[in-house]
Write a protein that binds this DNA or RNA. Structure first.
Lengths: 411, 411
DNA sequence: GGGATCTGTGAAAACGTTTTCACAAGCACC
DNA sequence: GGTGCTTGTGAAAACGTTTTCACAGATCCC
């Protein structure tokens, strides 16, 4: 909070949110020999709020150096070179400079050279904001992620960033943290910044809202199956992943297999259960309900799930976990209770977390091609922006066999 | 690749990088009854490249509807409402609309209302690009991260995003993937997009380059100690973290403690070794060189390190690992060799990975306040942007005691 | 009651590009 | 050698805001 002098329409500066509120009041004693009016504005410069409109009355004389110093806008001194300066240095018009820079029209070789020299000499780089304004494109792609801190989401995002690397688009990543409000806020902020396209990584925004967005901007939804969309949707085949893991357990002789779910209601959890079930049914195994325990993809919740499961005292020789964190949680409870893995209980996970290979025993799990998915999504969005339609695509996960499953002697 | 008709300066469209190359050639047979010139431009619209400059010669008559359809720019139809329309609907000037929207000047209540109604009625939201152009601020903050896929970096970035949530700034996150070229490219792209400030998360860009950048833009370096900077640098006290872990091992009776390093040459690794050493020295323990093994923060490399260490056949009762992934790698080798943890070897880690609590045994480790650091960095950068200087700050890590360290009977 | 100051508002300039438009000179062809 | 297309280029408009500037009416104070 800071008052700029006295003696004129004073300013109340709130640092918290950069709003400037004018408090009109009678002038008391003008600084120096002139009087000012100041349009209340939102310019913060080197800690001092500086008026842009400072008017000396006729006959009031010049501002003293003391005051000009005070009023000086120091950021303005670091003014960037503009296309106008290049034009005048190269003795051509601004249009020509633009044409050379964008390389989209014939320009005489000598002028081309002159422009390039001027650009180098003045160390010019074009202002992307101005370009965006006139082109109506920003060359940015909004990426709405949930929980960037998790390896799964982090890696997908990284894949997108990598895939966009060689293009002229950059990702603008926001983290919605699985919160409804934050995700709408995030999307609004992206739209206001006029990103050229949107990529949703997972999330649970209702399809209707996504439909609305898709009308306005090229939109891609990845790592989330959207049955309503026949295009612009890349996801991993959770059904097949779970099916292959369950199949593997069954082939190893397991019949009583417990299932620890992910977040109930989410399609990925559901599909994993369906794939799991399908494998069981194909081998005429009926799944007993007491072997289903609910969890939420986190290790702490898996601990609770494991305890519930053990309390039920229902026999099982293997557990299917909806992700690797769940497997880690279970493994810990089994350790604590002296249940040996895999000798007494086998475990399979899902995701292939970087640490799963280092669990003891190393975890057999379903690897999702996350980075690949991210990179493909980047390609897809570039295609979308060039007007090529993008068909939905299902990515196959891969069963990584390690040591957490034992072969049962079925005699 | 697509030719728009024949008969005039044709266009070769390269989809790969959106460059349009004009191929001048003699006209053959103009479409319809008029002739065109087309400024070669880079407009892609719904898969068809459409000329902006289509000139019918005098007397050539109107374009037929068939052709206007073809030439129509469909994205332009979805034109956003502008401040001008709000102004005319509310019967005030554009200036007044702007003033109401920004709330930075007195406006008569009745006009204020009229503007607000018009805004609601037309569902207007201001164009951030235009605003940025005139204000010279974009309200974006460039975040240069390395390896977003790792929990450590992912969580810091998440912290920054969370911290920026309530402000009017948004993060623009790029991943440099520890590559020199990618990081310079990333920084250049951020600067070209005129982000208002930069945050570097870790990384190894030379100080001189950072100094240069700092002259142009408010810059904050976090999660990396920069001894040359006395401000704008937030980092975690690696020395203290390692010291407390080593101290804990010593108090538990360990004398022969092995050290598995992080990436050699990086200051965080170095500081951890110094902290470790300091604790040893204070207890008059001389560190034997054969107990130092080099690694690089990844589990696979830790496996190699563990094997090297065991081959040396030097006695040790505990190992200090430079991060948790290293600890996981070691733990696996010890398992495989039948070395019990913690009964025969104790382990401490660094980072507190989400899965460390679920290692068997649960890993005693040094927790870094990563999300907190991210959030604080967000606050700091906002302060920086309002002109308040930001002093460098050291964040204290916390020793999390679990079960991977055993107390030795020192008799 | 009258000069000085305050207040609210619209017109217009500015931000830095790209694109359009107009034009002049060059070329090709009958 | 004239007609008509091609080519290169500069001036100016456009993108959608914010901010400046000018002005008129209101208020204040001696």
């Amino acid at each position: 909070m800071r008052w700029i002098g006295d003696g004129f329409r004073s300013l109340f500066v709130s640092f918290f949110d950069f709003r400037l509120v004018a408090i009109g009041r009678r002038s008391a004693a003008p600084i120096g020999i002139w009087s000012h009016w100041k349009e209340v504005s939102s310019y913060a410069r080197s800690g001092i709020w500086i008026g842009k409109r400072i008017r000396s009355r006729p006959g009031d004389g010049e501002l003293s150096s003391k005051h000009t110093d005070y009023l000086q806008d120091d950021r303005a001194l670091a003014k960037k070179t503009t296309i106008r300066e290049i034009a005048s240095k190269a003795r051509v018009s601004m249009s020509t400079v633009s044409r050379v820079l964008n390389g989209n029209s014939f320009v005489e070789e000598s002028k081309k050279q002159a422009v390039k020299e001027a650009v180098d000499a003045l160390n010019y780089s074009p202002n992307a904001v101005a370009r965006s304004l006139v082109k109506g494109q920003t060359y940015t792609i909004g990426v709405v992620s949930n929980d960037l801190g998790s390896p799964f989401n982090g890696k997908i995002t990284q894949g997108i960033a990598m895939g966009l690397q060689a293009t002229k688009y950059s990702p603008v990543i926001v983290d919605a943290l699985w919160s409804k409000e934050m995700s709408t806020a995030a999307v609004e902020s992206l739209v206001a910044r006029s990103v050229d396209a949107l990529i949703f990584v997972g999330g649970d925004i209702p399809v209707e809202e996504l439909d609305q967005l898709r009308k306005k901007k090229p939109t891609l939804v990845i790592a989330r199956e959207l049955p309503e969309w026949s295009s612009d949707n890349y996801f991993i085949d959770n059904f097949a992943g779970a099916y292959s893991a369950a199949q593997y357990l069954i082939k190893a002789g397991h019949r009583e297999i417990a299932f620890v779910s992910g977040i109930e209601g989410r399609l990925d959890s559901k599909r994993r259960f369906e794939g799991f079930n399908q494998a069981l049914e194909e081998h005429q195994i009926t799944f007993r309900e007491e072997l289903y325990v609910s969890s939420d993809f986190t290790a702490p919740s898996a601990v609770a799930a494991a305890e519930t499961l053990l309390e039920r005292q229902s026999d099982f020789s293997a557990v299917f976990c909806c992700n690797d964190q769940t497997a880690f949680g279970l493994r810990k409870v089994f350790s604590d209770r002296g249940l040996r893995v895999p000798e007494e209980v086998s475990i399979v996970g899902f995701d292939d977390d970087p640490l799963s290979a280092y669990m003891s025993p190393p975890l057999t799990t379903v690897r999702q091609p996350v980075k690949f998915l991210g990179r493909e999504a980047a390609k897809a969005v570039v295609n979308l922006l060039s007007g090529e339609p993008v068909d939905s695509q299902v990515f196959k996960p891969e069963l990584i066999i390690r040591e957490s499953v034992t072969k049962l002697d079925t005699t």
